[in-house]
Simulated scan of single mutants.
Amino acid sequence: MALSDPVSDVSTTLPSVRQVVLVPFRRRTYGVILYLALAFPLGIGYFVGTVVGLSLGISLSVLLIGLPILAATLGGVVVVAAAERVVARRLLGADIPAPSWGLSEASRLRDQVLTVLTNPVLWGSLIFVLSKLTIGVAAFTVIVVVLSVGLSLLGAPLYYDMPGTSVGVFLPEPIQRELSLVVPWEQFEVGISFIVRLTSWEVSTLPGALLLSVLGVFVLLLGMNILTAGGWICARWAELTLSPGKTAR
């Protein structure tokens, strides 16, 4: 059974504050995070296997031995795409019906091969499989940044006073900028000017550590919403490539 709260039901309008705040409490969110976390290792395997198989098959096709390699590579793409349809339905709530290959309309083996090779489903699946690595790299980067920054800030009250530990925001040197606004008025100039100075901030008290912890909650909440939006994009991409020709909703 697919998880509830399908990503495909997300409105095209901006989410409300309630929707943003409740993201960590939805099962679908963790399905999306799991999908994105798996995208990186799967993407590496898909890309290497597909590129190596196509390269060998095409280069050796003049010796005929390349044709079985090409057939095996494309067959692997079809199998992977079938599995990805199931995963996208379960974890992202994508609307991807089973594709039609039209093999029943071709009686001879040659006609069946041509039907498969000219079917948009095959080439859409190939595009999806090759694009999985790009999706995985982007998802892996966001997940690592969100978890490392968010959890380190969230846990600041647990280690801020440990010997040899420095917690806070540290700059190589203070940053100072002067901001001013001047408005001409007849023969005079009326303006206001103030100086903004940013310096390093080291947390040495429990209230300061708790403030960092609150900031960590905000980072995790923001990160989960970004990942959820990424899951929505992945669901639409899966629908477009793994089920070409499906009527747009």
Rank of each mutant, 00 (worst) to 15 (best):
A2R: 15
A2F: 13
S4E: 15
D9K: 12
D9L: 06
V10E: 15
L14D: 05
S16C: 05
S16R: 11
S16T: 15
R18E: 11
V21C: 04
L22Q: 12
R26H: 08
R27Y: 14
G31Y: 07
V32R: 08
I33M: 10
I33R: 02
L34M: 13
Y35F: 13
L38C: 11
F40P: 00
G45L: 08
V51R: 11
V52E: 11
S55H: 07
L60G: 05
V62E: 09
L64C: 03
G66I: 02
L67V: 15
G75I: 01
V79L: 13
A82R: 12
V86E: 13
R89Q: 12
R90D: 09
G93S: 02
W101R: 09
G102N: 13
S104W: 12
S107M: 12
R108P: 01
R110N: 05
Q112T: 07
V116Y: 04
P120I: 06
V121C: 06
V129F: 09
S131I: 10
S131A: 15
T134E: 10
V145L: 15
V145M: 13
S148C: 09
V149M: 11
L151G: 03
A156V: 02
L158F: 07
Y160Q: 01
M162N: 13
M162F: 09
P163Y: 01
G164Y: 00
S166C: 01
S166V: 14
V167M: 01
V169Q: 11
F170W: 03
Q176H: 07
E178N: 14
V183R: 06
F188L: 08
E189R: 15
I192G: 14
L198Y: 10
S200Q: 03
S200I: 08
W201V: 09
S204W: 04
G208I: 00
L211K: 10
L215V: 08
L215G: 09
V219D: 00
L221A: 00
G223Y: 00
M224K: 05
L227I: 09
A229C: 02
C234F: 11
A235P: 01
W237R: 15
P244L: 00
P244D: 01
T247H: 08
